[in-house]
């Protein structure tokens, strides 16, 4: 479980996040949604401790992460997996080395053991025969899947995904969404996903936090979001004609 209390963040006196308090639960996929520039990535980077908030706290379980020293931070990060907006695979390494990298850094397993674990993770994301390729030889969707494999190979307690299906075709996007949700259930992970994709909201939005200009406007489940009266949410959710038609069919 991750709890945030009253997170504020500004860049050069321009506020980007204005008092975000919420809870991300274990075994659930929680989505942070909102328009481009609404503060999703900044929020996630603050959760991860990559950017420091101006005020407010983030706690992982019973540990307040800003209270941890560098060593405690590093320890906590070993329990975290992250899928970046642009995959962020190490382009000097092969796919297999990419996935083995965190294991190599933090355990003393033999090469065979590491390779075995990497292969299991690759199988989990339905990728085969890519072990000795380098990231630039894979398509965007395959890179995303490798990034997921790398994020889960250490069996994290917390999983963060920044727009895991941006730039993917609708079918692959659904596959990735479902994959993340399955993994979340399987290992009972606390999963936080940034997205502006309404398909993801429908597929895996167990909990949704809606940001607009750095303010949490609304939170709830995907069952609730289609019925809410909150005008900003309605504007966001029904910005496409397709969804407008769906809404019309509701009422």
């Amino acid at each position: 479980m991750i709890i945030t209390k009253d997170i504020y963040k500004s860049f050069d006196n321009t506020p980007v996040l204005k008092g975000i308090s919420t809870i991300f639960e274990e075994g659930k996929t929680s989505l942070i949604i909102g328009q481009s520039g609404s503060g999703k990535t900044i929020m996630m980077k603050i959760l991860l401790g990559l950017i420091k908030q101006d005020s407010g706290t983030v706690s992982f379980g019973d540990k307040i992460s800003s209270d941890l020293d560098r060593k405690g931070q590093m320890q906590l990060r070993k329990e975290i997996g992250m899928v970046f907006q642009g995959s962020a695979l190490f382009d000097s390494m092969t796919i297999e080395e990419n996935i083995m990298f965190p294991i190599r850094m933090f355990s003393d397993e033999s090469n065979e053991q590491m390779r075995h674990r990497a292969n299991l993770a690759l199988k989990r994301v339905n990728l085969t025969d890519v072990n000795s390729k380098v990231p630039s030889e894979l398509s965007g969707g395959m890179q995303k899947r490798v990034a997921i494999a790398r994020a889960i190979v250490m069996e994290p307690k917390y999983l963060f995904c920044d727009e895991p299906n941006s730039g993917l075709d609708p079918k692959t996007a659904v596959v990735i969404d479902n994959l993340i949700q399955e993994i979340t259930k399987e290992y009972s992970i606390t999963t936080v996903i940034n997205t502006h994709d309404m398909n993801s909201v429908m597929e895996i939005g167990e909990k949704i936090i809606f940001l607009k200009q750095g303010i949490k406007q609304w939170e709830g489940s995907n069952q609730e979001i289609f019925k809410t009266e909150n005008q900003s949410v309605v504007d966001f959710v029904y910005s496409s004609n397709l969804f407008k038609k769906i809404r019309a069919s509701f009422f």
Binding site: L48, M74, R77, K78, F84, D91, F101, F106
Partner: peptide, 17 residues
């Protein structure tokens, strides 16, 4: 390049200096 493609963030998230 590692900075702008978030590879450095990826290292930090893994708990690597």
């Amino acid at each position: 390049t590692m900075r702008i493609t978030e590879q450095i963030d990826a290292l930090e998230v893994m708990g690597i200096n």
